[in-house]
Each structure stands twice: as structure tokens, then as C-alpha cells.
Amino acid sequence: MAQIGRFARAERDARIRGLPRRDLWWRVRNARWAGRRIDWSAYLFLLPFLLPFTVTVLGAIVFGVFVSFTDWQIVGAPHWVGVSNYAQAMGDHWVVGAWSNTLRYAMLYVPGTLLVALTMALYVNGQRRGYVLARAAFYMPNVISVTVVGVVWVWILATQHGLLNQVLGYFGIAPIGWLTDPKWVLIGLAATSIWWDAGFIMVLLLAGLQDIPKELREASSIDGCNDAQTLWHVTLPLLRPALSLSLTLLTIAGLRVFSQIYIMTNGGPADASQSVIGYVYEMGFGKYQLGYAAAISMMLFVTILIVTVVQLRVFREMTH
């Protein structure tokens, strides 16, 4: 309001006192947009962020699209090859295999993490004795480097002498090849990722739970609902925004999976755990077919965008 006041006053002063006509500088400084004076200083505030952001993020994406239409290699001049990288990817059975692995991994990882995180959040939100400690234990893996996560879980999941198989051995279960059997490897990797990420999703869900007014749950229990009914009919529907965000973030994390697989199995055994980004890595930085690698990552990029938009839309529809 102060600015509008000053603007009006200056205009009035200029009219009454016959002051010199407002020069260009004055006009720019007092330019208005959407009914208010423009804060030109905003662009200075944004510059230190926008400059590197434009180069390393927006520019990189645009450049990546360009590279995906070339036969870019580590040496030699790149040539424009049109959509042939994309056509090649469609017929490449390694690409198909990597997509299938990634989707099956995501189908274990996304619901698994969501379920575990929801259990954690409901438990911590109950604020029983020791809940701060439990919350710390749940969140702790999230601050750990992927190198540590990978190496520690290689040890836990080792077929011979692995901690998990030792514990299972007490119950008379024969050793399982968590990371060496093609049938089990995605399960072993998904379990690792669930341990790593569930704490973060728990925190998102906790924030959502705390936005639900206590009165609503109390009213429901006064109306004779038991805890399970309250959870299903009151808590979960009101938790939808947080659940929707979690689902989107988890789907993205599931589709982009690379580092833990690279460390734990490097795509093996027999490519049973090769992910899409793993294949991008192999093509781009193992065989230096950068154009081809860029095309495959673009396909994943578009998939992620579509999935994100669809999920957000669906949840918005469900909420209204």
C-alpha cells in the first residue's frame, strides 16, 4: 500500500506543481504490472540462482534432448541422426529387459515403502512412550550414503553367512540367494531401498497426520467406531494429499533407481537387476554411446513426467 501511496502522491505533485515531465527512468522505476509497482530488485535477487539453474538444469535438459538426436560419442564430431536412437531403443531387447526389471522393482518398492512408512507414521503419531527414539531409528537410514547402504546390505543379504540368512536359519529356512538368485534379486534390492527411504516418507505422512484435527478422530470414536474403522474412514481419506505426494515421489525414485543396484549387484546376476539408468550408465559411460544413452534417459524422463501428472490429477479428482 505504501508504494501505491507514493506513486499516487508523485503523480499528484507532478500535476499540481507543474514539475518536469516524468523521464524514462522514472517511468521504468514506477512501472506497474498486475496493478502493483514492479519490484525490479527481484531480478537481482534471482540472478545468482537463475544463472546456474538455467545452465545446469534447464540448459542441460534442452541440450540432452538435442544430444538424443545425434550419434554423440566421446571423440569425433557428432552427427544429427533424427529419431534413429529412439527407434533403436524400441527394438533393443536390453532396453526392454531393463524397463521390465525397473517396473517390477518399482512394483515391490513403491507399495512396500508406502505401507512400511504408513505403519511407522501411525505408530509414531500415537506418541506412546519412546516415540522420539522410534522416530529417530526409522529416519536414521535416510541420512546415510548410498555406498554405506549398499555395502552393509550386501553383507546382510549374503547367501553364505549373511545376517538375514543366519537369522532365517534359526527357523530352519534354507539360505536364500537374495542377491545371487535372479528370482530373488529384485526383492533383495527393494528391501534395501525400503529400509533406506521409508523414514523419509514417514516424515511426510507424519506432517499430514498432524494436519488432521484431533476432534475428528475423537468424534469418530465417540460415534462408536473402533480404531480400525477410524483409520479407514477418517484418517486415511484425510491423509490423501500426503499419500499422493508420497506415491509420486516414490514412483519417481523407483523408476530412477541406479546407485544401490550399481553397488550391490552391478545389474547381475545375468542382468536380472539391470535398471534403465543402469543401462544408460553402461551405454553412456561404459561404451561412450552418449547419444543413445541420452535418448534412453529422455524416454525415462517423459515417462516420469507423465506418471507424475497422472498421479497428481487422479488424486485431485479423488479428493474433490
Binding site: V280, S297, I304
Partner: peptide, 23 residues
Amino acid sequence: VFWAVLIVLMIPTEMTIVPLFIG
């Protein structure tokens, strides 16, 4: 600018490694 920030929050860094590496 705000929308660009929001969208980029959702874009994994893995998507830009090839162009960044060339750069």
C-alpha cells in the same frame, strides 16, 4: 520461475547426467 522450481524438484538428477558430462 516458481513453476520451474516446482517441476525441477520432481526431475531426478539422473536425467541430466549425459548432457552435463558432455558439458
